[in-house]
Nucleic acid binder design. Structure first.
Length: 466
RNA sequence: GGUGCCAUCGCCAAGUGGUAAGGCCGCAGCCUGCAAAGCUGCUAUCCCCAGUUCAAAUCUGGGUGGCACCUCCA
């Protein structure tokens, strides 16, 4: 399998540190607001990655954190006069629910900042002891970027020469302007945690390094994890700083491979809280089946920027529909487990830095070919078995087509409407039997008005939500 | 201003040296009572200029046009 390493800026063959195993850490959400399409994209990308790694026979340990200590959470809690935990629990649960709706499996480990404070203290202490961090008179602890000769090698940034003269001397006692806080002392009455460095809150980057150390790192390895991932914006400063903390505070580097997914834009504009154009997952899920969203968000290569628009989403839905129609055609047949050339090629495409486009092309070709054979030789047993095996593999590796095909096509319709449609279809069938086509066509118009399309087949009349 | 990424059919999107995958849309046909679904066929020389090469969408240089990061952000 090859992975594009966004630090080395090249595709590299993936070789895990421990044979047969792979460790993966991804920066998860800060739980103070609803997840938007960008969060979905990132979760989806790394969900796919774990599936592909597993399909390649690797024993994967996947960790994705929940940041539940953060200024934005505190701000929201104060505004709404709620307890911090009430806020974080609410959004954590919402996040889990929405991720499930788009077929994202729960990571093996989901550490929370509030449950990882000891690990953070430990790392800070080590860095202070080794002179890579220093305490200020205010009680803050900063990472000393000048003490790390490899600082900025991750994001390949150049230290700005004129920064010092341009910057107004701030009140903080930082040695270098690039130094970042690991522990912030807090004097007011807001949320604080007791620590060996006084009451306060951890800096943003600290938790990831600490959690990785606590849950995934193995002392003798050269890297704490095989792969570290996150959104493209995290490379700097977040990942740069995480890497510095781990490098200087432990005897290993943070990650061997770095993966960063591209952004989701809306109508060509970056989606962000400050622009107020966030598209929340929960709202999208009201209108579209979660799997349609999954398919759409995954249909473009993970590193490219993704421009969300409803037209393309519709095109994705039509493509997913084809998988489900084939499933419908073969409904009820035993699920084969044959090894096929198709499965091999599919995995090969996905193992090439997750080339989903090529994988989808293979799927479309497989579907066409299966339908063609089914059209001409309906009793072809072997083909049916093989096709079932292929469809099962698509479910496993890509998470497409996992639902009951009939239910899939009923998305968003209430029971009353479904009953009405069924009744109309029965009436139409009666009219068709006596060749009263004027009536049957009129009934069809009524059915279409319910927002569905119908299709007559040898097995009866089926309908689908348009 | 600094750093980096990208530019392929109307739209989405693979392909990174050997002669342009796939999907949507459109057109024609088969099937159908008519449809729908399914199937078949048709539709691009890869932003511009120059260079390297037997050979370039793919490499190099220049240009133009997008975008991202440098501050919280997936």
């Amino acid at each position: 399998m090859t992975i594009y390493d966004s630090v080395k800026k090249e595709k590299r063959e993936f070789i895990p540190q421990e044979e047969g195993k792979a460790t993966l850490y991804v920066c998860g959400p800060t739980v103070y607001d609803d997840a938007h399409l960008g969060h979905a994209k990132s979760a989806l990308v790394f969900d796919l990655l774990t599936r592909v790694l597993k399909a390649n026979g690797l024993d994967v340990t996947y960790a994705r954190n929940i940041t539940d200590i953060d200024d934005k959470i505190i701000k929201k809690a104060m505004e709404q006069k709620k307890d911090i935990k009430e806020i974080t629990d609410f959004y954590t649960e919402a996040f889990h629910k929405e991720m499930e709706a788009i077929g994202v499996a729960r990571p093996d480990i989901e550490p929370k900042a509030t449950e990882s404070l000891e690990a953070m203290f430990e790392l800070v202490q080590k860095l202070i002891d080794s002179k890579h961090a220093y305490r200020t008179a205010d009680g803050d602890v900063y990472f000393d970027t000048a003490s790390d000769s490899e600082y900025l090698t991750l994001s390949k940034r150049v230290q700005e020469e004129d920064e010092k003269q341009n910057r107004v001397e701030s009140s903080s006692a930082k040695k270098n302007s690039a130094d970042f806080a690991m522990w912030k002392s807090v004097k007011d009455n807001s949320l604080t945690f007791d620590s060996p460095f006084g009451a306060g809150r951890p800096g943003w980057h600290l938790e990831c390094s600490a959690m990785i150390e606590k849950h995934l790192a193995c002392g003798s390895n050269k890297y704490a994890v095989d792969i570290h991932g996150g959104g493209a914006d995290l490379l700097f400063p977040h990942h740069e700083n995480e890497a510095a903390q781990t490098r200087c505070g432990t005897n290993h580097a943070l990650a061997n491979y770095w993966m960063h997914n591209g952004f989701v834009n809306i109508d060509g504009e970056k989606m962000s809280k400050s622009l107020g154009n966030s598209f929340f997952l929960k709202d999208a899920l009201k209108v579209y089946d979660g799997e349609v969203l999954r398919f759409y968000l995954l249909s473009t290569h993970y590193r490219s920027n993704f421009n969300f628009n409803e037209e393309d989403l519709t095109a994705s839905k039509k493509r997913l529909d084809k998988i489900y129609r084939l499933k419908k055609r073969l409904f009820g047949l035993a699920c084969g487990n044959d090894s096929t050339a198709f499965k091999e090629k599919l995995l090969e495409a996905l193992s090439d830095d997750m080339n989903v486009s090529t994988a989808l092309a293979l799927i479309d070709e497989m579907i066409s070919s299966a339908n063609e054979t089914l059209d001409t030789a309906g009793k072809h047993k072997e083909l049916k078995r093989e096709t079932m095996a292929n469809l099962a593999y698509i479910e496993e590796v890509l998470g497409f087509g996992v639902k009951n095909p009939f239910e899939y096509f009923q998305f968003g319709l209430d029971e009353a409407t479904k009953a009405k449609i069924d009744a109309l279809i029965r009436q139409r069938d009666e009219a068709k039997k006596v060749k009263d086509f004027a009536s049957s066509d009129k009934l069809r118009d009524e059915i279409l008005a319910c927002g569905v399309s119908i299709m007559d087949t040898p097995q009866g009349t089926f309908w689908e939500r348009v």
